[in-house]
Design a protein around this nucleic acid. Structure first.
Lengths: 238, 238
DNA sequence: TGCCTCTATTTGTCCGGACATATTTTCATT
DNA sequence: AATGAAAATATGTCCGGACAAATAGAGGCA
């Protein structure tokens, strides 16, 4: 009869009440004590129910303030999980970064294009590929206070990994923009492609825990050799 | 001194023990009773600690079998949350789909390119934009047993939304591939772009709960009008 | 009015216990 | 040896209680 546990039943009732507007966003849910009284359950059971709602992101709880509705529906429907920086780059596992140049950011270089002061950054130019096949041409800006050496970069799969290993600065947020471009003669020859062919252009911005940018990159990938794939899964919410 | 709660301390100790190989993947962690005895805590506290590890995906628990290590490191480091189908498409909120053609899939059309039997699918051609500005040219395949009418599609922001509303078929997994292309004369004129300019090409495959494909789309977006942006956040694991 | 302190309230942590349920192991039976 | 019943065991659910910590709100004070 009562196959589902009590605390899940309570949680489901509250979820429904939130969904149908009985409790609107910003409203206060009943306190734990009130739930205990109205449903004749122990405080522990009430807490378990509210814990489910908290984990789903539907409510937030604060001492003395109570439980307030944060969203009428579970905030995220789909998620794209990433195992690490390599999954973001989507190069083959054995693709290596060949560094062509690495030094203080020139005044008229990548930093200027992004509206950054070249003084505080180091610029790297390189190409990525496996063996002789080049799959991407890259420009990178690294903040000088967390710039690894060339050797440290080359022994890690990505620059972000090198920074995390060397300086302990971990990316908290990464913004990525993908657009398309037509290869001009110079870039095409570096990539071994036909001038006038298409390429994918990815820009990535790595932010630390304070939201400050510490790493930026721009890469061109010939369309005939590179497709950016991603997979989204619907979150289980029961 | 002991600012952090006991159960979080225990969880951290276990996390560390898993990370440094004291417990390897597949090993059994101490039972709740053993944790109670060794750390002189109540079973409730031990359970709270193990709950944290379970939520992080580090361990799985089964009655009688105990707690086994599922992964040495938290499985997902970054997540890209999506609120719905519109976030995937990344068109402006007021962008509308103008349907140019909608009917049974022709034998030599999009279905053939994807290796699908044209008999079971309906093909749609359209363009998306706001007012007069066209931002994308689209080909879509819809499985015939869940194909909405043209009116149903036009009154919803996306075709996936229309299918979910009309047939109750919700996408469980969406695969997306992004590549680049050069616009030829015919497509360029439809999009109002220069022939030979670059465009972003997105292919999306929507799968239902059984993993079966029910919706596929291919869209071309002029690079000068469209950039695909995404944001990844590091998962909080504490 | 503005600022401060104090209090009451609500959630967070932790303890103790009990029974339920699923699953493995053991052992008796065939 | 194969099968099936029973026991043992680890987690899941639920109850009761107690104190701690944070903080919104009331009330007092300048």
């Amino acid at each position: 009869m009562t196959a589902t546990p009590r605390y899940q039943q309570i949680a489901q009732m509250l979820r429904a009440a939130i969904a149908n507007g009985t409790y609107k966003v910003g409203d206060l849910l009943p306190t734990e004590q009130e739930l205990c009284a109205t449903h004749e359950i122990s405080r522990h059971t009430a807490r378990d129910a509210l814990r489910l709602l908290t984990e789903a992101g539907l409510v937030t709880r604060k001492r003395r303030a109570g439980t307030v509705v944060a969203a009428a529906t579970p905030p995220t429907v789909f998620v794209q999980p990433l195992g690490g920086f390599q999954d973001l780059l989507q190069y083959a596992r054995d693709a290596r970064l060949k560094i062509l140049a690495y030094g203080p950011a020139p005044a008229d270089g990548f930093a200027r294009e992004l509206g950054l002061d070249p003084g505080g950054w180091r610029e790297l130019r390189g190409q990525r590929g496996t063996g002789t096949a080049t799959v991407g041409l890259t420009r990178v800006l690294v903040r000088t206070d967390c710039a690894p050496t060339q050797a440290e970069i080359e022994e890690r799969p990505t620059i972000a990994d090198a920074i995390e290993a060397r300086y302990g600065i971990a990316a908290a947020r990464i913004d990525q923009q993908i657009s398309a471009m037509v290869l001009d003669g110079q870039v095409a020859s570096l990539l071994g492609s036909e001038p006038g062919s298409a390429a994918l252009l990815t820009r990535r911005f790595y932010h630390d825990g304070h939201g400050a940018l510490f790493l930026a990159s721009e890469s061109a990938h010939p369309a005939d050799r590179f497709v950016y794939s991603m997979s989204f899964n619907r979150e289980r919410s029961e």
